[in-house]
Structures are given as C-alpha cells and as structure tokens.
C-alpha cells in the first residue's frame, strides 16, 4: 500500500517534469517548476513519515517554507526583463 502511494506520487511528479522539458513558453515552464518544487517536498515528507525519520521531515518542511521564495524572485526578474 505504501509503495503504491509512492509510485503514484512519482508518476504525478513526471507530468510537470515532462511539461518543463517540452514547453518553450517561459511562464508555462515556471508553472511546471512551481509544481515540481511542491511535489518533491511532499514526497520527501511522505517518505519521512513512512520511515519514521524526523530529520528527513525537518528537511522537507524547510524546503517547503523557503523553496518557493526563489521562484517568486525569478518571476519578478522575468517581468522586469520583459519591461525593459
């Protein structure tokens, strides 16, 4: 059961990776990367709970709370570059 859950989650993770690989529009790629970052962190959290490993869970929580900040900065930089 637990393995099934992990396999399903990794399959779901493949969709945005495929999108980021084939799409050339920058905003669609940004969406795909935002999705990848959340999904990887949640997968790490699930693994940490299944293995009962506290440290791995801390890493996942930290990824979740800082990971998206970089994407927001990148979005603002892209907008500035468009304008200039």
């Amino acid at each position: 059961m637990n393995n099934l859950i992990l396999i399903a989650m990794i399959l779901a993770l493949l969709i945005p990776i495929c999108e980021a690989w084939k799409d050339e529009n920058i905003w669609q790629t940004m969406l795909a990367f935002a999705s990848i970052s959340t999904k990887t962190a949640i997968i790490a959290l699930v693994v940490s709970v299944l293995r009962d490993d506290w440290m791995l869970g801390v890493v996942a929580a930290i990824i979740l709370s800082v990971g998206n900040a970089g994407l927001m900065l990148l979005a603002h930089i892209l907008k500035r570059m468009r304008e200039s």
């Binding site: 969406l31 959340t38 929580a61 998206n68 979005a75 892209l78 304008e83």
Partner: peptide, 22 residues
Amino acid sequence: ITLALWNTMLGYVLAYCSSSGG
C-alpha cells in the same frame, strides 16, 4: 500552514507577473 501560505502567494505572484508582462 506553509503550504497554504506560500502556494497561494506564488499563485498571485505568477498571475501578476505573467499577465502584466507579455
């Protein structure tokens, strides 16, 4: 809590930047 906060904010930032950009 961080999921709800950051993902929503990222959604707003992406919507704002992508719509006023190109």
